[in-house]
Amino acid sequence: MLERKLGKSGPAVSAIGLGCMGMSEDFYGPADRGESIATLHAALEAGVTLIDTGDFYGMGHNEMLIGEGLKGSSKREKAVISVKFGALRGPDGSWSGYDGRPKAVKNFLAYSLKRLGVDHIDIYRPARLDPDVPIEETVGAIADLIKAGYVRHVGLSEVGAETIRRAAAVHPIADLQIEYSLISRGLEAKILTTLRELGIGLTAYGVLSRGLISGHWTAAKAGQTDFRRHSPRFQGENLTRNLTLVENLRAVAERLGASVAQVAIAWVLGQGSDIVPLIGARRRERLAESLGALKLSLSPQDMKALAEAVPPEAVAGERYAPAQMAHLDSEK
């Protein structure tokens, strides 16, 4: 497994990380507990070290699942655990904002440590910017937890260039987690430049755009009752237009002797050694397919062909519904 370092201050991790959100029955519908744990184990055995979760995935379920999967000192020692925190939810699964107050940060962490069954978290990050709390206070609270030995590194998620600079002035930042793919390239204008100027890594989620550019999604799946039914890119004419772009990708992938998912992941890998894609596999077969991207050697011409297959201006729909877009500091 190739390794990449997350920024100047962050840890060395596998070149591809495992995003575990889909392993909880919350966003992507039913999940198989046994298969999820088997996928986590297979990832560790393949050399994947970066394991990403959120304390609000399944309202704690995801962390408990990972904790079960990492039982045993050898498995824990292999894993670099990244946790997002701060999202507020109701017992009906509803969302009610974000809490980045220092006392809330410490409370969230206490519960995460218990659910995961660990004595520290490797990278701890607010899931979104709390508009009512200066980022300096939130990062300062994480810095205090680092001094106390409960956290190793500070991460950020979905924040813009100005917020990144303010956070980095308080404490070194390992990485920014943000959506980045052939179909979501907005960060290239300003955010990516800021990260590189400051020596901050990037962990890219949504590299397959929630399955849209995996090569496995079809219009027939549009009625599935998971959170994608609320995503503009999966709706109506937008979906039709976006699936046309996927067919463009398929043509390039077939020429390269790879799957659509593999070339999409390889394209993100090829954007710089400071970028680590997170793959949301929850089955071993999808994990194996995704890891196959590491075997691809894309030439500059191949990279250009992939980018031209999915022109940014041809992508239909925003990456989130309007209510969710409003919480993205990275989009302001």
Rank of each mutant, 00 (worst) to 15 (best):
E3Q: 14
G7M: 08
S9L: 09
S9M: 03
A15T: 06
A15G: 07
I16K: 04
L18W: 08
C20G: 00
C20K: 02
E25T: 15
D26W: 14
P30G: 12
A38P: 00
T39Q: 04
A46G: 07
G47S: 13
G47I: 08
T53M: 02
G54N: 06
F56W: 10
G58R: 05
M59H: 14
G60N: 06
M64C: 13
K71F: 12
K75N: 09
A79Y: 04
G86Q: 05
P102Y: 10
K103N: 13
A104N: 14
V105A: 05
V105I: 03
L109P: 03
L109F: 10
L113A: 10
D119L: 07
D122L: 06
I123K: 06
A127K: 05
V133H: 11
I135C: 05
E137A: 14
T138S: 14
V139A: 07
A143V: 03
V151D: 01
L156F: 07
E158W: 02
V159I: 14
A168M: 04
A169M: 05
V170R: 08
D175N: 15
Q177N: 14
Y180V: 00
S181I: 00
K190E: 15
I191H: 01
T193S: 14
L195I: 04
E197N: 04
L198A: 10
I200V: 15
L202N: 08
L208S: 05
L208V: 05
S209D: 12
G211V: 09
L212S: 01
G215M: 05
K221I: 11
G223Y: 12
D226H: 11
D226C: 12
F227Y: 13
R233I: 02
F234S: 02
Q235Y: 09
T240D: 09
L245Q: 02
N248K: 12
R250M: 08
A251I: 09
S259W: 00
I265A: 01
V268G: 01
L269F: 03
L278H: 03
I279E: 01
A281K: 02
R282D: 06
A288N: 15
L298S: 00
S299Q: 13
D302Q: 09
M303H: 10
A309G: 09
P312S: 11
Y320G: 11
A321W: 04
P322E: 01
A326T: 07
L328E: 09
E331I: 12
